[in-house]
Design a binder for these strands. Sequence first.
DNA 1: CTTGTTTAAATGTATAGACAACTATATATC
DNA 2: GATATATAGTTGTCTATACATTTAAACAAG
Lengths: 240, 240
Amino acid sequence: MIDKNSPLPIYYQLEQEIREQIQNGILKQGELLPSERMYTEKYNISRMTVRQAINNLAQEGLLVRMKGKGTFIAEQKIQHTLKGITSFSEEMEQKGKIPSSKIISLESVQANSQLAAKLHIEENSEVYQLKRIRMADNVPIAFEIAYIPKYLVGELRENDFTTSFYQYVEKNLQLPITHGDQEIESALANEEDQKYLKVTEGAPILLIRRLTYVNDQQPIEYVRTAYHGEKYKYKLTLPR
Amino acid sequence: MIDKNSPLPIYYQLEQEIREQIQNGILKQGELLPSERMYTEKYNISRMTVRQAINNLAQEGLLVRMKGKGTFIAEQKIQHTLKGITSFSEEMEQKGKIPSSKIISLESVQANSQLAAKLHIEENSEVYQLKRIRMADNVPIAFEIAYIPKYLVGELRENDFTTSFYQYVEKNLQLPITHGDQEIESALANEEDQKYLKVTEGAPILLIRRLTYVNDQQPIEYVRTAYHGEKYKYKLTLPR
DNA sequence: CTTGTTTAAATGTATAGACAACTATATATC
DNA sequence: GATATATAGTTGTCTATACATTTAAACAAG
């Protein structure tokens, strides 16, 4: 299992082995991992090397170390909901709601200076502006305005948004979505929000602005989403 | 700076020193950290111990290791803010604000059924209720109500909250904080919020409820925080 | 000007061993 | 039965050392 002549570090090989055994169910959740000394003897490697492998896995949350007792295989964490970017559709499906969305408009507009800076494009260059209402079980949950640089995606039709836009980007455009930077704040609904979310003046909304990146650096989408204050909560699990 | 007779591990003391020097600007962003050998000689400790300290800080994203070149003080990371649980103090310091907090009250109360369920304790068992105002540069940013099971922390005094409560838990109580589940929503300030945040009726607030866990399973703190809608944004980076 | 070689310095990987601190269990003692 | 006490096994910390890999700079050769 461990090849001392491999170019891969020993600690890394051991990591992979333990990872696989957890995946395969050979090592079961909540159970005790073999002690450091066991690995030391089994593979004839030093304890510090074993510790490096185990420590890395513990840092990832796959193992839990307990002084004096041993190292345990971690219970699977529930933190599924917001460990990564989830689309509205995925989010709602997870909650047992039927998601739908209604496109209000899809236009080509010129980026002002602020938007251009955010999207890393030239001022006045063409961007798509997409306005949508997001619904769960046909109740409006959010009103969304998205801006997408035209040069990155070419010609778009409304059809491209009926399914998942993220999937369209990754499959058809071959651009891997890497991460998103979000800002969350509380605000009061503006006139447009009020109109589409069907709330009255002074209603609180959850305002989320997201800049989504492809290839780690290139912004592909800037979205401002206004969530209905009473009907939407944002849940996430923070590690460590 | 490093006390070999201290009960605190040497690697931990070194971590703290480097952390402070980054905070104080003695070590500046983008610059090179003194080499491992320098620390080895300066404090007469082994290189592995130095590496343990530096590795931990690198894992946190505070330092960036580069093989063959050296270790650099990380550029301010956008995603540091919310990659994991951060205390209010840490958050504000990162933004260059001077954090402070004012304790409104610290009482012992009985948990109602809802709170007991959240904290995994018996109904009517004793919990501390702590009310605080969080300030940045002496401007109130948030009003916070925290509940902490008494049996987990023993006797508490207001003093234990003047510094970091999380540090108190991890150091003095030896309970490792593992993660936190958060709910974020938008709401309107209630009377208490209005009073302490100095906002008028109808002002939007960002409501964050957090259940903080130790040892992966045991809730140690339930906090409801009302953030001033106009003065606070919540930022995070979602991977993948 | 380009390419190859050497060298010093840095981090990366790995070993062997020591002692400390903690946990659980067994054992002796009251 | 209850309470210390010893003991074995575990992870945590730390040292001292060695060699591997990578980088950058100086230098040499073409």
